[in-house]
Design a protein around this nucleic acid. Sequence first.
DNA 1: CGGTTCTTTGAGGACCATCAATACGCGTGG
DNA 2: CCACGCGTATTGATGGTCCTCAAAGAACCG
Lengths: 228, 228
Amino acid sequence: MTTAKFESIRDLPLFAGMAEESFGELVRGAFVQTFPPNMVMISEGDTPDFLHIMQDGCVELFSTWNKHETSVATLYANSTFILAATIKDRPNLMSARTLEKSRIIMVPSENVRSVFMKDTAFAFAIVDELARCYRATIKNMKNLKLRSSLERLANYVLKHHHRNGDALEFRLPIEKRRLASYLGMTPENLSRAFNSLKPHGVTVNGQMIAITDLDALKAFAKPDLLID
Amino acid sequence: MTTAKFESIRDLPLFAGMAEESFGELVRGAFVQTFPPNMVMISEGDTPDFLHIMQDGCVELFSTWNKHETSVATLYANSTFILAATIKDRPNLMSARTLEKSRIIMVPSENVRSVFMKDTAFAFAIVDELARCYRATIKNMKNLKLRSSLERLANYVLKHHHRNGDALEFRLPIEKRRLASYLGMTPENLSRAFNSLKPHGVTVNGQMIAITDLDALKAFAKPDLLID
DNA sequence: CGGTTCTTTGAGGACCATCAATACGCGTGG
DNA sequence: CCACGCGTATTGATGGTCCTCAAAGAACCG
């Protein structure tokens, strides 16, 4: 069966509810591709021929304008991307590069659009995913516009504290220069910002982050359910 | 027929393709409400009971955190809002206030979700609208992260030049302090920024904006299809 | 082990926010 | 019609945040 090699994504929220037949039609003509690290696989402005689903690895979405570049998001296993561009059949607004060796399932955009019309469960899952991405981006923008860079960093530390099972010590998942770009600051400033967080209960050693005073950090960061 | 008073929205992209029966079911229990100017009708954190469709007037979406407020978007006739929150049945991420007296159609969120499951054309239209909003927000974020405040203002002027049929002179649609907030700056700085645009071919007189040198403005603003 | 990239630190400057004061616009009521 | 009050817009002075440039230290990789 040709769908066998795509079993690993069958249970993702985006596909779990759809009929077996629809899934078969969706992955017809799909293929798995492995990319080496640090490879730009999508450039903004391109028309999206494939919906991308990450099976394994790490991918950064970023954008460029007038010699400036900014990191928009970092994606890990089981993420889908350029869904919106695929659906609307419009040019991608962001570029994508691998940060590590990554295995990615490429589903032809036409399949997505045609199966969407036939399978209600799939359609609903797509709406759900789009709405989720949209809301995540709104949160991101609020974060940028309402907080200083130090506050953004503090909340980033708190968020990853939770993502690591409330561990008080964890490793940064990405390079600091990319974190800086994601947070809308320069690497130099990120370095200084980490130092400025020391009085608020955060110490840094290389990639390792340690929270020494969780209450102080929370008091400073003021995390918010409608942003974080 | 109860759908008569909703005929004005029947031709909006979101509803145009759906079956008459579905439309009837959608607007069952819907109603029109008129709000006075400067009234907060949605507060972030609220659960969305109604999809809002603006028939007439002007509404600002904004957000607040830690005593700071920022303007996210300004909506005019025929816009829908809080669609994502309605679909996901999650709390609103933004507040909404009227800037002028506004007439708004309130469609029960449950109707949206149930009709969505039955009417494929409606489902597709919702995906289209969500994808559009998502992409608009990504553009907004790129604008904020990749450009200086002066560049953002220059591109704002260019965009409204096009929205007004390429008129070289037009009236600002909103107060300057809201424009400042939308662009991520203070009113004082916006005032100075307008002055700084003079060498680039823009003069300001109250609410009136005049482009005196379109080429110079474009050269400075470097507008981009993937942002603007 | 040498080269490359990333990170850190310092000095200086650009950009932007804040505060304060004045000018402007507009609607209300005297 | 004018005076007044209120919110908005502008202008200047000042300070903070953040970027740029430069150089040194640390980590990574062939």
